[in-house]
């Protein structure tokens, strides 16, 4: 059985002429002795031969015309980013770097804001960064149609943030200085820029 296992591991190297003379002899001997390995070998050999002869697909006739028009467009709008193919590892690394920077800058955020709405930045991946004073209001009933412009901030739930996250990566939030000094259901906050990822 161990011999059969070794045999199956070497089928391709045999077919591609990659075995040493001694290995080749051993391989052929087992092939003679073992019916099931012989069968397996011949199946793989047929398969490989067939694939080598499979008809090649060709580009369609419009290929050049389409490419040309795409290139023309390309020339009209020069690329801001000229990155070769980024491997997934690097994409991940870049994402991590962005996340780290966001978390770092997010450390300046008013803690009260996080406490008030029970946001846990580490668990919800909400990164907040203060930018400037501004006003922003969100109607309670309209969280799905959240827009950037002056809404009355009534209640901001995690679900609202989730909706915002889907609408846009960057939203401006207004955060309070003091909940008590303002009219009910209105909060004045330090403004923050949020990057919400899920």
């Amino acid at each position: 059985m161990a011999e059969c296992y070794n045999f199956s591991k070497k089928i391709s190297q045999y077919l591609d002429n990659e075995l040493s003379k001694a290995e080749k002899i051993q391989f052929e001997r087992h092939r003679e002795e073992c019916l099931s390995c012989r069968k397996k070998f011949s199946e793989i050999q047929t398969l490989v031969n067939y694939m080598h002869k499979m008809p090649a697909k060709k580009t369609s006739e419009s290929f050049n015309v389409v490419l040309r028009s795409r290139l023309r467009k390309e020339l009209k709008t020069p690329h801001k980013l000229s990155i070769p193919v980024i491997r997934p590892v690097w994409q991940l690394a870049t994402l991590c770097l962005i996340a780290c920077i966001s978390v770092y800058t997010g450390m300046f955020i008013d803690r009260k804001f996080i406490r008030t709405f029970n946001l846990k930045p580490d668990r919800t991946s909400v990164y907040l960064r203060p930018i400037r004073q501004a006003s922003l209001d969100i109607p309670k009933s309209d969280s799905k149609h959240f827009k950037m412009k002056n809404y009355v901030m009534d209640e901001l739930k995690l679900s609202d943030i989730a909706n915002m996250g889907r609408l846009s990566n960057y939203n401006t939030l207004q955060t309070t200085d003091s909940l008590n000094s303002n009219p009910p259901n209105t909060a004045t906050f330090q403004t923050a820029n949020a990057i919400v990822r899920f």
Binding site: K57, T59, S60, F63, V66, L67, R70, L71, E74, H79, S82, I83, P84, V85
Partner: peptide, 24 residues
């Protein structure tokens, strides 16, 4: 094509390959 099993998608991939070559 052998990767995707679809001519249209395969053409698009090849187009994009050449565009990237052009760009980069």
């Amino acid at each position: 094509f052998r990767f995707l099993g679809n001519q249209e998608e395969a053409e698009d991939v090849v187009q994009e390959t050449f565009l990237r070559l052009y760009r980069n």
